[in-house]
């Protein structure tokens, strides 16, 4: 779960995705000094470098004071001309106009890197089966391990078009065959826990509120478990997540019924976010190397000898317990990345 992909170009402020296609068509990334800074980071590929490299380069420009207003970079499409922009990137133009009030034909688009995709997820086989019999996963929440430590643009299609269908077919055929080991009571019990948990929550006083805790979690994950990671930050993030988990227990919910209960939805989402944040942080703390999207400023090199392996996290009352699994290498062994 420590492999979280950051997309280099999201619209500054709203973080709506500005497609890679904008650079594919020939867009430039420019800092406040007017430099195409990718020249320093990937001189051969420039703006078309891999996502992790362009995202890190862009964040570094901003962190080192070469961003606009200290916060963003320009994605300049103006030299492509009106016709090409209107014909090839009409959606991007509309987004920039609607959400930033900027027409890319006339002005550069303000962008910043943003969290984009989780390479990690619930471990599944190619048929969507998880270690928990009867539970299937497909899509971003799943991890079939087709993306390694860094998904390539467009490869989510594999999950939406292929693996989703495979999981559905497998689930259907397993139900027909009444596969052994499936325990319907487990799901029934979970549903009862769900209902009684709402009753319990809605009777409490509620000194804490979801949106405040969510805001604090967002800040700590962005600042300390983001594009650049280091031990001291990860340790302090871990502490903060523990504190938030403890405060989470004091959240109260006013509405007692299930229909349109936004508070209850927010509560459940936050619970999931806290667990996921913990697993990401623990995994990132343990992985003392840099690989794909996971970058440690204190361990900037890839270390295949110790870390060419999958992290598996298990939920325990004390928090996440990590285990490791060997990687199956098929046709393409990892090699040094030079661009």
């Amino acid at each position: 779960m420590e492999f979280v992909q950051f997309h280099p170009t999201s619209l500054f402020g709203t973080n709506i995705l500005i497609t890679e296609g904008a650079r594919g068509e020939g867009g430039y990334l420019v800092n406040v000094k007017g430099e195409r800074y990718m020249e320093r980071h990937a001189p051969h590929l420039m703006e078309l470098g891999p996502r992790d490299i362009v995202a890190r380069a862009t964040q570094r420009e901003i962190d080192e004071g070469r961003g606009f207003e200290g916060q963003y970079i320009h994605l300049d499409l103006r030299h492509l001309g009106r016709e090409k922009i209107m014909d090839h990137l009409p959606g991007i133009r509309q987004i920039a106009m609607d959400f930033a009030g900027i027409d890319p034909i006339l002005n550069p688009i303000p962008i910043q890197p943003a969290q984009h995709y989780s390479m990690g997820g619930i471990p599944t086989n190619v048929d969507g089966e998880t270690p928990l019999s009867g539970l299937y996963a497909a899509g971003e929440c799943a991890c079939v391990s087709v993306h390694g430590a860094n998904r390539l643009g467009g490869n989510s299609l594999l999950e939406t078009l292929v693996l989703g269908a495979r999981a559905g077919r497998k689930a259907a055929s397993n139900v027909k065959g009444e596969k052994e080991g499936f325990n319907p009571l487990a799901f029934q019990k979970q549903s009862e826990t769900f209902q009684s948990s709402l009753r319990e929550r809605s009777s409490g006083k509620g000194e804490e509120s979801c949106f405040r805790l969510r805001g604090e979690l967002k800040t700590v994950m962005t600042n300390q478990v983001g594009i650049f990671r280091r031990e001291s930050d990860l340790l302090s993030a871990n502490e903060k997540i523990k504190e938030l988990k403890e405060r989470f227990g004091r959240i109260g919910i006013k509405q007692k019924k299930l229909a349109f209960n936004n508070e209850w939805i927010q509560y459940l989402e936050l619970e999931g976010m806290l667990h996921v944040a913990e697993v990401i942080t623990e995994g990132a703390l343990a992985r003392k190397e840099s690989r794909g999207s996971h970058f440690r400023t204190d361990y900037p090199e890839r270390d295949d000898e110790h870390w060419l392996r999958h992290t598996l996290a298990h939920k325990t009352p004390e928090g996440a317990r990590l285990e490791y699994k060997e990687v199956t290498i098929t046709n393409y062994p990892p090699k040094e990345r030079t661009y």
Partner: peptide, 11 residues
């Protein structure tokens, strides 16, 4: 918290 409306992508 009871104010209800639909939303998803924000974009």
């Amino acid at each position: 918290g009871t104010l209800s409306f639909r939303y998803s992508c924000r974009g």
